[in-house]
Computed example of a mutant assay.
Amino acid sequence: MKSIAAFLVLALIWFAGLLAFATRVQQSTPAPYPEAAQGVVALTGANSNERIAAAMDLLQDGMAQRLLISGVNRDATREDIRNVSKPARRLYDCCVDLGFTAADTVGNARETADWARSMRFKNLIIVTADYHMPRAMLELRAVMREPQFQLQAYAVPTPALKARRWWRSPKSARLMVVEYCKYLAILGREAVLGLGPRDPAQGPSTADAAQQED
């Protein structure tokens, strides 16, 4: 009986956490317009076109000096990405960098950190999907622990998740539950790593690269 009671308590805590996570995701959009920064980063994923377009709008509005599109498909060309984002040629040629090394969120974080350090940028606007933003920010802060880094979240809405009863759609429910579980896994990893000394520049271990793409 004690084991059943313990399981029910854990299940209740997990479910309450899921509801809090879902509320956080739904309330993250529409995102308030960010303050100007040195760089803006678009993390590619399920709705890449919307993410890239939102980041490009920020660049065109003068909210950043340069844009990094992280996790670009290695088969894509600069012209392919330009056709998706549709910026002015002059702005695209001068101020947009493409990152081809990231294959998942861990890779996005490392690629973003390398780019920021190479550009000597300290202030970044991070653009990704609303459901992906909590985990993305955890991963970014895991590899950008230096206090000088300032990260602003600019979430792109996922229409299927804006419904009040998102759990009634199997697709929406699965997306929210899977992302919540991934988020918990990162929280657990950081809690364990926080128990011992850690090189601030090290970031997640190689084993963490097994995290799936959003």
Score class of each variant (00 low, 15 high):
residue 130 D to N: 14
residue 51 R to W: 01
residue 107 G to V: 04
residue 207 A to W: 13
residue 126 I to T: 03
residue 131 Y to W: 15
residue 89 R to S: 11
residue 175 L to M: 14
residue 87 P to I: 04
residue 14 W to K: 08
residue 189 R to L: 12
residue 83 N to G: 09
residue 168 R to A: 10
residue 16 A to Q: 08
residue 169 S to K: 00
residue 150 Q to S: 10
residue 208 D to I: 09
residue 133 M to W: 06
residue 76 A to Y: 14
residue 214 D to R: 04
residue 44 T to M: 13
residue 109 A to V: 07
residue 4 I to R: 11
residue 120 R to L: 07
residue 58 L to T: 03
residue 51 R to G: 00
residue 124 L to M: 15
residue 169 S to D: 14
residue 186 I to P: 00
residue 173 A to I: 02
residue 113 A to K: 01
residue 109 A to W: 02
residue 111 E to K: 08
residue 95 C to K: 03
residue 66 R to T: 07
residue 187 L to N: 09
residue 75 D to V: 10
residue 33 Y to N: 10
residue 191 A to H: 15
residue 187 L to V: 14
residue 209 A to Q: 12
residue 165 R to V: 06
residue 43 L to Y: 07
residue 100 F to Q: 04
residue 24 R to G: 03
residue 195 L to N: 05
residue 143 V to T: 14
residue 210 A to P: 06
residue 40 V to C: 05
residue 87 P to Q: 11
residue 204 P to D: 08
residue 195 L to M: 13
residue 124 L to F: 10
residue 75 D to H: 08
residue 108 N to T: 02
residue 99 G to C: 05
residue 209 A to F: 08
residue 86 K to F: 01
residue 41 V to R: 00
residue 147 P to E: 11
residue 181 C to P: 00
residue 22 A to T: 01
residue 110 R to M: 09
residue 94 C to Q: 14
residue 50 E to Q: 15
